[in-house]
Amino acid sequence: MNIRIDHVLKEFSRYPALDDVSLDIKSGELIALLGPSGSGKTTLLRLIAGLERPTAGRIFFGDEDASGKSVQERNVGFVFQAYALFRNMTVLENVSFGLKVRPRATRPAGSEIRKRAMELLELVQLGGFEKRYPQQLSGGQRQRVALARALAIEPRMLLLDEPFGALDAQVRKELRKWLRELHEKTGHTTVFVTHDQEEALELADRLVVMSRGKIEQVGSPDTIYDAPLNPFVFGFIGESSSLPVEVEANELWVGGRAIGLGAADAPKGHAQLYFRPHDVELVTEGTALAGVVVASRRVGGTRRVELEIGGNAERVEIDLPFDHPAGEKSRIAFKPKRWRLYSGA
């Protein structure tokens, strides 16, 4: 089931949570909505589910305009951040809920419901837990029950709202792997919301990076990571250092000095240079960026140093091998191996 979001605007009392958002989600893909707090990603998810209605714009499921349909009619499987399991029901009753509330015409027989619910519990590896109550389960187990419950109604798509947010790091890693496997097995179109870029990069077929109600970029993890379209995306995904530069004579200049990076297609004038701290090479001769070490700390297997560039209080961070002899006030010359230039800083 492919989903098309068409120029959607969502306002909460004149404050636009989503501002003219359009997106095409392919059938069967696992796509992540990624962004900081307030970016609108959860609002978008809830709009797809029908838990909110757009102020303007439409949402299509396949060829069908779903914008006017109630949430019950949309048949989406939604997994909430805090699971929202029904505390007064057992695990089995929770999973069976969606089937039990169907109108008589489409409701399967009681034994059939039980069979399907048990199968789903097996699928999420909670085989013996059907008589337990949600309070008796761990966070990771509750999450899987929530997923099984959503799958029970044979949804057209799966929508997950920060599914692993409330779990600790180890459980999160396991569940991520498990979700990927489940997706490959069942093939549902899956949209999930997260603020954790590592999670998004690891899990998703495509990422949608959002900020302040707008989509900044859509693409595969590689594209987003290697070819970010703007400073926000560059800075949000992975670590970054940036420096204001001048583009002149097809070269980049900092503080009046060329730094040995060519910029053939860039427009003349001010720009902002972005690179990743680990994507640099140290240079001993020739034109390069030069800076003075003002701070240094050990990060895992490398050393992260903070350099003051060109004496004008611009600071960048780069990674050095941990046994590099640089100390405070040493001069370091380097060039970014991979970098992006954004004009009009």
């Binding site: 109630s70 805090a82 509330v101 959503a150």
Partner: peptide
Amino acid sequence: ELEEAAATLGANRLQTITRVLLPR
């Protein structure tokens, strides 16, 4: 979220109230 969950699973308002809210 409890009511929203019930709605996404297909329950109408009356079912949500009687099966999810009242027991709570």
